[in-house]
Every structure is written in structure tokens, then in C-alpha cells.
Design a protein around this nucleic acid. Structure first.
Lengths: 201, 201
DNA sequence: TTGAATTATGACTTTTAAGTCAGTATAATA
DNA sequence: TATTATACTGACTTAAAAGTCATAATTCAA
């Protein structure tokens, strides 16, 4: 019985290690079995199929992280301290599992591309756009409108991700036919968040 | 000669349409050929392989968007207006190509999962975390610390994406062994951006 | 100790999709 | 019109990986 639990955990941890090494897109059941030092058929005794295995890899990871963040946040009393604790705990968790998250975060490119070259040009485009925004931000910092000490390129990435996230939020909320007003509103909202944040002045 | 260019464009646009309908992860060369009403072999006369085709689908789309945004931004003089124009133009572009972008943005889940059920639980976890943050933000809005009129859940998504983006930025910059100070710095930076933005007060 | 139940194995089957290429149709040229 | 060059076709080959299952090893219980 306890043997079973061990094997279940063994397969999970082997999968996690493999994902760190080769990414989701190259993960195969054969490799998982090999990594765990067991036969492929055995994997299917503990997991319904590949989908089930990956779902469990991600869900157990998430639950661990969420639990940790909730506990840390509960200690703080003031709202801003809660947010600070949350961010810090989240970043720490990402870094402690950095190879896993690196794969998770960057593997999105692998959905689409099979070859290194295309991945590189994908990242290059992302960089070109962020740098373009970075230049605008830089000139704002030089004119004294924006705070000094900003990393312009990084801030560019941040703005791009805010725009993308707003779109994803709308897509997930089934908002597909936006009126011009809605778009104007979204624009204002993102610009405002990026320029002034959510605090009252 | 002009026939060739037409077929090249035909394959590109058929691929784009297909991606809108079924996503990257289900795209096959057979389906592309069928959609374009040509033989599979013909696709390989215009594109080296699948990777080449997808790379060109994405790069042409990006160049179009980037050109458009650059032109629009160039019209404005003040930095803040430039940023506003950029955001607005970017959002507009996303909405005009909404089905394509919906797939691009949400297909990241498909890297990992094959079945609908797992995708749903993935989105559910994302929502649970954002809602948790949303609750904190809500209490901050109620106490008057944060601006009113915020959508807490959406703001939660925004914060999560800022954290994620900061990590991606570090990963892309090959920063894998962060000191505690670097993590503390990142935390402050994100919290500060989220609370106060990049403008000077 | 033995035989029933449980767990494990890995060769095999099946599926899916990328990529090829010999043959066919169409267009260009002499 | 005949010949060459170019463009197109889709059945076929190849490859990769998911999932199965008859058989073997191990554990457990009487």
C-alpha cells in the first residue's frame, strides 16, 4: 500500500524533473518511465493517461504554492503588506523551482514551434517591441515625467504583459464584441495602472 | 509569377483562418492543404516545413501590427500620449484579429494538455489565485487605500501577470541564481509598479 | 508452503501526422 | 505544334509516441 504511494510520488517527481530538463513539449511516457526506472505499463497503473499525469503534476505544484502564499499573507495585517508578502512569496517559490517554471513560462513558444531558430526569432520580436516601448519610457524618465532608476526594457515587457492580460481577461469573460467605448476604457485602465498604479494619490 | 505569390498568400491566410478555428496545437499540414484547396505537396513548394510556415504566419502578423503601432505613436508628441496611443492601437489590433489572438493567448494551455477537462481545471486554478488577490485588493479599496472602481479580479490577473513577466524577463536575461537581495528588489519593484505606477508623484 | 491476488513488465498495436517523390498537368518557348 | 520547364498532385513512406495486454514477478493470506 505504502509502496503504491511511493510509486505514485516517484512518477510525479520524475515527470517534474524531466519537465525541467526537456520541457513539456518533449515529454513522452517512455521517457517518464525510463526516468522513474520502471516500465511504461506501470505508469498507466497509477495514472489514467498522459493528460491525467500532467494535470496532477501541475495541480499538486499549484496547491503547494497556493497554500504557502496563503499562510504567509495571513500573517500580515495591512493590505499593502499582504500584497508585498504575496509577491515576495510568489517570486521565492518561482525561484526555488526555477527550472520548472522556466520551462512552464517559456514553453509556450514550443506549442507553436519545433525548431530553435523560430523560437529565437519569436523572442527577438518580443524584444523588439519591448525595446520600442522601452525607448518611449526612457525619454519620459529623461524628461522627469517618469521615476528614475527604471529599467526601460523591463518596463516595456511589463506593459506588453498588462495589455495581453487585459485581453485574456476579456476573452475568458467571453467578451468578444467590444464597442469602441470598451476599448477606450481598457486603454485608459491599462495606461492608468501603468502610470499611477492602484493606490490613491 | 504573380500566381505564385497568390498561392503563398493563400496558404498563409488559410493557415491563419485554421488557427483561429482549431488552434495551433491541432494544426496539421493536411488540414492546411485542405483549407487552401490544394495538395499537401504544394504547401511544401512554398514553405520549407511546418516550422517555416508557422514562423511566417506569426512574423507577417507581427510586422503588420508593429508597423501600425509605430506609425500611430509617431503622430503623438508627449510621452504619455505616445503610451496611450500605443496601448489603444495594440488593443484595437488584438480585437480586430480577436479569434486569432484568442487562440494564441489561450493556446498556451494546449502545450501541456490534450483534454478539455484539464484545460478547465488549469483556468480554474488561475482564477482561484486571482480571486484570492482580488479579495485583498477589494479590502484595500473599501478602506480607501486603493482607488475605487477597480475590478478586483481583473487587477488580480494583472498582478499575477506582472510577477510572471518579471520572472520571464530574468529567465531570458539568464538570471538563474538570484540572491535574496535581488528577490527583495524584484518584489519592491513589482509592488511599487502595481501600487504607484511609473510616473513621478 | 502453496496458490490466489496484486503489481510490474515491455514487446506489440494503433494512431497520427510530417515529409517525399514519381508521375501528371499546365505554361512558356522555340 | 513540339519540346522543355515549371507547378501541382496525393498515395506512400517514415517516424514518433500513446496506449494495451499477455505474461512474469512479487506479495499476501490461509
Amino acid at each position: 500500500m505504502s509502496e503504491n504511494i511511493d510509486k505514485f510520488e516517484l512518477i510525479l517527481s520524475s515527470s517534474r524533473k524531466l519537465i525541467e530538463e526537456i520541457g513539456f513539449s518533449s515529454l513522452t511516457m517512455d521517457k517518464v518511465a525510463q526516468k522513474a526506472g520502471i516500465a511504461k505499463g506501470t505508469v498507466y497503473l497509477y495514472f489514467k493517461d498522459k493528460d491525467d499525469l500532467l494535470e496532477k503534476v501541475l495541480s499538486t505544484g499549484f496547491e503547494k504554492m497556493f497554500e504557502r502564499i496563503k499562510n504567509r499573507v495571513a500573517v500580515e495585517n495591512r493590505v499593502i503588506d499582504k500584497l508585498g508578502a504575496l509577491i515576495s512569496e510568489n517570486i521565492n517559490h518561482i525561484y526555488e523551482n526555477r527550472y520548472f517554471f522556466k520551462t512552464i513560462f517559456l514553453d509556450e513558444v514550443n506549442v507553436v514551434f519545433l525548431k530553435k531558430k523560430s523560437k529565437e526569432s519569436f523572442n527577438l520580436r518580443r524584444k523588439r517591441y519591448s525595446d520600442f516601448i522601452g525607448d518611449i519610457i526612457k525619454s519620459g524618465a529623461e524628461s522627469g515625467e517618469f521615476v528614475s532608476g527604471l529599467n526601460p526594457a523591463k518596463s516595456g515587457y511589463m506593459l506588453v504583459s498588462l495589455i495581453k492580460t487585459a485581453a485574456i481577461y476579456n476573452f475568458l469573460s467571453e467578451r468578444f464584441e467590444p464597442t469602441p467605448e470598451m476599448i477606450e476604457n481598457d486603454t485608459k485602465e491599462i495606461l492608468n495602472l501603468f502610470l499611477h498604479g492602484i493606490s490613491v494619490k
